[in-house]
């Protein structure tokens, strides 16, 4: 490891620590804003450090730089614009949208990685988390989009139940198992990846559709925890500690937060997820 890389590794560690502290500060109204700023600062440092790391290694092509910087600019501006212009009442669906793109990024990252590396590098300790990353990330992607659509009124907020939904979910679950195992056996084959991707994208929709609009904040929180887990899996795929730490942090804290939100509504998480009954748009969320 070169000196620069060592320094960057320590910066990553400091950033990860600040993400934890920032999240902790958000527990109380008095320190919440400071916590968010600390967390944002840490994220900025981590992104800048990654850019320096790539420059130091020198492996990235000019096209790579252009693509990356352009993507950073486009994504940041889109996020900034949406976050600044959104109505206060529309914030939960925007969070859901950001959650969707986070999950989408985790999926694309794994797909891209599998296409790039030599087949010899795709050992089970990469392909298993890779398969889970695609599965969880893709479920979150469509699930969060449906949740946002429900809150925005683009999709009816009432629970949508259709005949055969349960059977479909069983079929999809089988497809998950087949997809992950097939991917581990034949990682260089594109088919298992596509099967897994398709099944997960459909499952995200069928999971959230039967849940009423009033329960959406809890569902978004749950999907948020899912994305955290997908990001941790992406960390395993790339061998990147920062992703593992931040992903595990969000996965676990998101799960606790989901429980707290469900408790605040006097509901259990299982009760909400099974859905298909109870509340539509008209009820006011208590969380």
């Amino acid at each position: 490891m070169s000196t620069t890389e060592t320094i960057i590794r320590y910066l990553f560690l400091a950033a990860a620590a600040c993400l934890v502290l920032g999240l902790h500060l958000m527990n109380s109204p008095a320190t919440a804003r400071r916590g968010n700023l600390l967390s944002a600062g840490a994220m900025g440092v981590a992104i800048a450090a990654t850019a320096v790391l790539l420059a130091e290694k020198g492996s990235i092509t000019t096209t790579g730089w252009i693509v990356m910087l352009l993507a950073l600019a486009v994504g940041s501006l889109a996020g900034l614009y949406l976050a600044r212009t959104v109505e206060m009442t529309a914030m939960p669906q925007l969070v859901s949208l950001f959650n969707a793109v986070g999950g989408g990024a985790a999926v694309l990252l794994a797909v891209e990685h599998f296409q790039q590396v030599e087949a010899a590098e795709l050992v089970p300790e990469v392909t298993i988390p890779g398969g889970l990353d695609v599965l969880i990330g893709a479920v979150t992607f469509t699930g969060s989009l449906v949740a946002a659509g429900k809150l925005q009124g683009l999709i009816p907020g009432r629970p949508i139940v259709f005949p055969g939904a349960r059977l479909l979910n069983v079929v999809l679950s089988v497809a998950f198992a087949v997809g992950v195992v097939w991917l581990v056996v034949q990682p260089e084959n594109l088919l298992p990846m596509l099967l897994l991707l398709a099944a997960s994208l459909v499952f995200g929709v069928t999971m959230v559709l039967p849940i009423g609009g009033a329960d959406m904040p809890v569902v978004i929180s749950l999907l948020n925890a899912f994305t955290g887990t997908a990001v941790a899996m992406a960390g395993f795929v790339l061998g990147e500690m920062t992703l593992i730490i931040a992903g595990a942090l969000v996965g676990a804290s998101g799960a606790i937060l989901t429980k707290l939100m469900a408790d605040a509504m006097n509901r259990s998480i299982a009760n909400i997820i099974i859905g298909g009954f109870g509340t539509g748009d008209e009820a006011v969320a208590g969380g």
């Binding site: 920032g22 109380s28 992104i47 990356m68 994504g75 990252l109 904040p217 990001v231």
Partner: peptide, 26 residues
Amino acid sequence: LHTPLMSGANSIHGIVVIGAMLVTAT
């Protein structure tokens, strides 16, 4: 604070952008 905390945790998993940048390099 539930919703802001959810949103805060949501931004933290944006760390995935680092992984995406690393993948872009190759």
